[in-house]
Amino acid sequence: MTTPAVLADGLPGDVGRKRAAISRRGQARRGGRTRFPLWSWFWIGFAALYFLVPVFSLVQFSFGGTLANGRSAGFHWFLAVFDDPAFRSSFWLSAQIAFETVALSLLLMVPTVFWVHLRLPRLKPVMDFVSVLPFVVPPIVLVVGLEPFLQNFTWLYSRPEVLPFIYVVFALPFLYRSIDAGLRAIDLRTLSEAASNLGASTFGALARVVLPNLRSAVIGGSLLTFAIAMGEYTIASLLLFNTFPVYIFYIGQGPAAHEATALSVISLLLTWIAMAALFVIGRGGRETAQLGVTK
């Protein structure tokens, strides 16, 4: 289960930079279009094969095999998976945890980043540093450190509701970066001063002026957070909770290979939907930004 790793590539901060790089390359290509088209296509094709062949095999296998009655399987494995009560309970558990993680992260990060940008700009480098810590500390280290601490809270420790509190840490870099980038794109100080000059409270300014302008940043960061929480395996399995990734791993270990691949296809689809949503939102943001430059 490597959903987070796949998605890590799509960090919003990176997306912007990459997009800039892509458009720069686009211009360069327009200048010297005929230079090395053959080689470009070769490498693109090669990379595509490298990524697509395994995916294709996976999808093929999930539809493959013959049933006891001699017919080809078709959607059989998918239906079998959907029919499994363990699938449904683990899927809903993960979805619920993911929603809670998103809600908790937003509650924590939006006001914090807003406040740091507005009132404590000197803390920004500290925030930048703290926000990458989850990348440096491996999950296994985190969970080993957390366990003794969590044992003080037995009522929470034994329940899956503990997971959002841990996943918030993993989501931190993604959410922080995208909100930070969103805030940099607007003149936060002037906008919030204008709002309070017109009578809005700090909360009113945040809710009516700042948040609406951060919409794409917040949605983007939330989707990433959701995907991370949905796909996290290490901690959930160490703490013995039956989340969706743990369930997939469990099925994969067993004899039901077709069901396991069907599950993988489902989780890949989820990831891609999240990515597509990110892309669409990102493009919306870019269009607004471009219009903003035109006076």
Binding site: I186, D187, L191, E193, N197, G199, P212, T288
Partner: peptide, 17 residues
């Protein structure tokens, strides 16, 4: 926000949304 004064800023300050 309680002073009821009107202020026009040097930077463009309209709410973009």
């Amino acid at each position: 926000n309680r002073r009821n004064m009107g202020m026009v800023f040097q930077a463009y300050s309209l709410f973009p949304n």
